[in-house]
Amino acid sequence: MKTTTLTATLLLTTACTTQTTHIYKPDGTKQCQPPTTTLTDSTTTLTTAGINVLTSTCATQTGMAVITVCGAPTLGIHLHEIKTSDVPKAKRLGYEEAHNLVNKDRGTGYETIECPNPD
């Protein structure tokens, strides 16, 4: 009986510590201008704060319109996968949970893209 209880406890503990969440932050890029921050910059911000980044990619918000004029923001975001337990720390750095971008009724979401070149 003790072995079964110990095994169940270990499985539950492992399951809780491996839950992950995708977070994002706008990449700050303005139309007609080169990127001002890179995915590496965003990842470094998180790791410096003690957050283990599991994966990182560039992405863009979908289903939204933006004004087309030089200097206006784009829909580019930096998307990271982190442990769910680190989300509060990431939020203090200005990141949000990526699932908040998805709204099937409005047709909004996000998709991964190739990172822009910082010419």
Rank of each mutant, 00 (worst) to 15 (best):
K89H: 09
G50K: 01
A49E: 10
D86K: 03
T7W: 11
E97D: 09
Q31F: 07
L93Y: 02
A65N: 00
P116D: 06
G94P: 09
C16V: 12
T45E: 14
G50T: 01
T74F: 08
T5F: 15
H99T: 08
L75M: 08
T47S: 09
C115K: 11
S85G: 05
T108L: 01
G63P: 00
H80T: 09
Y24W: 09
H78Q: 06
D41F: 01
K83C: 04
I77K: 03
K30C: 11
Y24E: 01
Q33P: 00
L12T: 11
T38D: 01
A65I: 08
L12D: 00
G28Y: 10
D105K: 14
T57Y: 07
L101H: 04
N52P: 01
P26I: 02
R106S: 13
P88I: 09
H22S: 11
A15H: 06
G71H: 02
T112S: 13
H78G: 04
D41Y: 04
T14R: 06
D119I: 02
P34M: 03
N117G: 05
N52T: 15
N103H: 07
T47M: 04
L93K: 04
A8N: 10
L6R: 13
T44R: 13
T21D: 02
A59H: 04
A15Y: 08
L54W: 07
T60K: 14
E96A: 15
T44L: 10
E114Y: 00
E114N: 09
Q33A: 15
H78I: 09
C70L: 02
C58W: 10
A8S: 13
T43M: 06
P118W: 08
Q31M: 05
P118N: 15
T68P: 00
G28F: 02
C16T: 13
V102C: 02
T29H: 13
C115A: 13
L79K: 02
L54Y: 10
T84L: 06
T9Q: 14
C32E: 09
L93P: 06
T84R: 04
K2I: 12
E114S: 14
T62D: 08
T112N: 11
L10Q: 10
P26Q: 01
T20V: 01
G76D: 13
G71D: 07
S42F: 10
G71T: 02
S56Y: 06
S56W: 07
H99W: 07
V102N: 07
P73I: 05
T112M: 04
A59E: 06
N103A: 03
L10W: 09
T3D: 15
E96Y: 11
P116A: 03
T68Q: 13
T43E: 08
R106T: 14
V87R: 05
T47W: 03
T45S: 13
A59D: 00
T108M: 05
D86E: 03
L75P: 08
M1Y: 15
M1Q: 00
G28H: 14
C115Y: 12
S42L: 05
Y110C: 05
L12F: 10
Y110R: 03
C115D: 10
